[in-house]
């Protein structure tokens, strides 16, 4: 009656190959998953480390947020007013959304609700291809096509301005917004549409009264991600906005964006100088803004609505 004789079970303490593979894969997946957190914290720590001495020592908060004078290279009296850059980025992004929201939501509604069969498939592929166009190509279009077009059409001296950059940025952001918005619309069950259609609702009434309210969170997230894209975009804005420090009075004024400023100036600064650290401070500002926008989009998708 010893244990060995009654039990035909395998040795329950022996760890076999599958056990090690399981543990190994768990660790691997954990590293993959955790790396996103590591990277984002790492990046934040890095830009904070580079920018913080400027914030604590040199920066004048009042000047930074209210003065449009960004003169970091002045020999006698460098000033670091970021207002023009903030307004530049905000105005270009704002105009881009004016362009992108109707286009992308219209496209998403058409693809998800009205287009059928082959039309829908072709459109989806084309929209995704549009999203893959490199930003420097968009900048090129802004510089060489939109610029003369705006000068001729509106009879203004310069075609590199808020209008140009806003349209370019709007067209850039529209495909990704379309794709996300379409996903949100497709997630609305067909039974809803059928129920409304059986009541005698027209196609448009179904979209307006049933599908859009049901997909509202996803659509808001799509727009917010588009805004985040607009804030972060650098190359196309640098090329199409005119890149001149200016508080814009209208859509035909040239502006300079936060991102473009960093891209254009960082290479010319001495590492550790005030100018260098000021650019990193702009980076911190951008990071916080896009982080908040993306976080909001994420919360909206999960349906956490603030009341």
């Amino acid at each position: 009656m010893s244990r060995e004789s009654t039990s035909k079970l395998p040795n329950l303490d022996r760890r076999d190959f599958a056990w090690f593979v399981d543990k190994g894969m768990q660790v691997f997946m954990f590293i993959g998953g955790i790396s996103a957190i590591v990277f984002i914290i790492g990046i934040f720590v890095f830009i904070t480390k580079e920018g913080l001495p400027f914030i604590t020592d040199t920066m004048n908060f009042g000047e930074f947020f209210t003065s449009p004078r960004w003169r970091p290279t002045s020999e006698n009296n460098p000033t670091y007013g970021a207002l023009a850059l903030i307004v530049g980025t905000a105005s270009v992004t704002g105009f881009a959304m004016v362009v992108a929201v109707p286009f992308s939501l219209g496209a998403a509604i058409f693809i998800a609700e009205f287009a059928t069969g082959r039309t829908r498939e072709i459109l989806k592929v084309l929209v995704e291809m549009l999203a893959a166009i490199p930003s420097v190509v968009w900048g090129f279009i802004g510089l060489s096509i939109m610029n003369p077009l705006i000068i001729d059409t509106f009879n203004v001296p310069v075609g590199l301005n808020v209008l140009n950059a806003g349209i370019i940025l709007g067209l850039m952001a529209a495909p990704i917004m379309t794709t996300i918005a379409e996903d949100a619309l497709k997630a609305v069950p067909d039974t809803y549409r059928e129920a409304a259609e059986a009541m005698g609702a027209t196609r448009w009434q179904i979209v307006w009264r049933v599908v859009l309210p049901a997909a509202r969170n996803g659509l808001v997230a799509a727009v917010l991600l588009g805004v985040g894209r607009g804030f972060g975009e650098t190359m196309a804005v640098l090329m199409a906005s005119g890149h001149s420090i200016n508080l814009p009075g209208g859509i035909f004024d040239s502006v300079r964006a936060l991102t473009a400023t960093i891209a254009a100036e960082l290479g010319e600064t001495v590492q550790g100088s005030d100018h260098y650290r000021a650019l990193f401070t702009l980076g911190i500002l951008l990071f916080i803004v896009t982080f908040v926008i993306n976080l909001t989009a994420d919360l909206v998708v999960r349906g956490v609505r603030k009341k």
Partner: peptide, 26 residues
Amino acid sequence: LRKRIGVVFPLPVGLPLSIYDNVALA
């Protein structure tokens, strides 16, 4: 025509609107 004909499906379809708006839709 469909407005004159009410349909109740075998599986309930509560539209993702408020209860009030569900009934006020038609």
